[in-house]
Design a protein around this nucleic acid. Structure first.
Lengths: 339, 339
DNA sequence: CTGTTAGCGCATTCAC
DNA sequence: GTGAATGCGCTAACAG
């Protein structure tokens, strides 16, 4: 059983117009700018819309208006809860402003990020949020040529593609290391996440090393480890550091999951924290406030980063002049029982 | 160069065609079906595409072909890591098949889900994945009228809108409760997540009650608590249950974060687990394998749910006949040290 | 294999 | 305040 000869497809604005006895243009206006249409017309349109369960075709609308009202977001990993609160706040601000969000996951790969940026731009997103701050040459070119506003959020880069909202990974890691030094720890290990194509990891390690220098402590390369994410990796790293033979007294993990894994390993082995070994973390995963002992960490205002990023995009889309913006949201050291 | 005026905007397929000395249609084909175009033509097109950094406008393509190649996914909360692995596998399968994904977050609200479904359908998504299985009347109508394939994943409903890939929350909760009974626990508490508009929570509680009956244990309503998510809530619930005065010996938490919060509370108070109180959880959060003690839980194959959901959509989009599908991925009880 | 014609469903721009 | 004409950039369907 097909519809009338009228090409069986979905209901269009024209159909609604016909059934409401008005022109398609009036339907379009009644839906987007109800104020510019007389009450009588609007009621007729609304009735027909409800009757048919009509949903305007935004694809056609976007093509015609040359605006998609969709923002693209690329994070290194959707699974990492770290990004979740940022995603949420970006999403909330955009929705409050009638914009939609496409989230993509680059899997920490530069090539994948490039492919995703291309795909998003091909969808004609009207703005981008990129967590990574290291991009392929072509990725940069694509963004520049497209001319859409872009916010980079993973690290406060000196010269962003367009806008940046973040904190300094260098300053944060340095501050935490100095904090440990001031607490009296002298042999401070450091476990970094993979450094490849990752600005943030590199900056954190740089911060750690700069702090040692400032504290007048020697750099012991046996005390610096690289680990991929995960609880097991954190546990392994801790054990390896303890076995170096050096009298290591604290470990700073550049990722909260690593720190957590290490803490659990200590619980399993009965190593007192911080008595036998102190543990510090990066990023205030909610859990760190609940473990026994609670874990000292760096708090980064992830939600604020998301909110302000989205606000910048919204403003730009509303006509704010394109100017380089660089917002430092800062960070905070949360001293708890593990150090 | 008369009409081309550089101010006009982005580069179009027509521009590429002109510069490559071919027709727009050849450009279109060279990009989408390179095999159907001669080598010579394809090389000319590729050269022009690279020279201008051309990205085809998918909005125009979608409007013309009446296919968006975008799938919509609605989850109750992006922040919940539970959904993350499902999202990831959906995303992977879709991308491998040239489809994109829009993720939306309903905040556990029925009204919000309806609004999101409407927005996604207005974007003319070619498929939907809905985690929630309770929908508003209008939400159901919208989906049905749109005629796009839909997969529901949160609970294995008897009569899905279209397709369902999930496990039975009832069976799972019942199985775990029976498992606890068989281990010898006689006073088994239950902490549920909010029940409102939430099929999954209701089914889990039903399963718990059915198990008590099967075990021949009395139902003590003081031992059933409702808690919103979060570590604190889990801790609070545990303490309240312990203070009922009844000699409660085990608690089954219908959410992994709740269980974790309870476990940490036990660590803080020095309550032996499972000696003084046994703890069981729902959903195999990675952490539960690492805590001290490790936590008994229900493992649900979240990634498989995502993968199979996406595969069903892909098949349907490739022309598979619309038939009601109902896939039970099952679950597994993971017995660990907390019980 | 390649090109031509004719829309896709809406919003912009102008008349009225 | 309303409507008619026009085209957004691309692809389906056909013709050559």
């Amino acid at each position: 059983m097909k519809k009338k000869g009228r090409g069986g497809g979905a209901i269009t604005m024209g159909d609604i117009a016909r059934h409401a006895g008005v022109s398609p243009m009036t339907v379009s206006r009644a839906l987007r700018e109800p104020g510019t249409v007389s009450d009588k017309m609007r009621r007729k349109v609304d009735a027909a819309v409800r009757q048919f369960g009509y949903l305007p075709n935004r694809i056609a609308g976007s093509l015609s208006s040359r605006r998609s009202n969709i923002v693209g977001l690329v994070v290194p990993s959707i699974r990492n809860s770290l990004y979740a609160s940022m995603i949420q706040s970006v999403s909330d601000v955009l929705r409050a402003n009638g914009l939609h969000l496409i989230i993509a996951d680059s899997g920490h790969s530069l090539a994948e990020e490039e492919a995703l940026v291309a795909a998003l731009l091909a969808q004609r997103v009207c703005g981008l949020v990129l967590h990574n701050t290291v991009h392929s040459k072509r990725g940069c070119d694509l963004v520049r040529v497209a001319g859409v506003p872009v916010v980079e959020t993973g690290n406060l880069v000196a010269r962003p593609l367009d806008m940046a909202v973040s904190y300094s990974n260098f300053d944060a890691a340095k501050a935490m290391t100095v904090h440990l030094g001031r607490l009296g720890y002298r042999k401070i290990g450091f476990v970094t996440l993979p450094l490849r194509d990752n600005d943030r990891s590199k900056e954190r390690r740089r911060g750690y090393l700069a702090a040692l220098k400032e504290l007048g402590l020697p750099v012991d390369h046996d005390l610096v480890l690289e680990a991929v994410g995960g609880l097991n990796e954190g546990a392994d790293a801790l054990v390896r550091l303890m076995q170096t033979g050096s009298d290591i007294d604290a470990v700073f993990f550049a990722g909260d999951v690593l720190a957590l894994g290490a803490l659990f390993e200590c619980q399993r082995r009965g190593w007192n924290v911080p008595g036998r070994i102190a543990i510090a973390s990066f990023d205030d995963l909610d859990l760190l406030r609940h473990t026994v002992p609670t874990v000292t960490t760096l708090r980064v205002p992830r939600a604020e980063i998301g909110r302000r990023s989205a606000e910048l995009l919204v403003n730009r889309l509303r006509g704010a002049p394109p100017e380089r913006v660089r917002i430092d949201v800062g960070f905070e050291i949360v001293q708890r029982d593990s150090t």
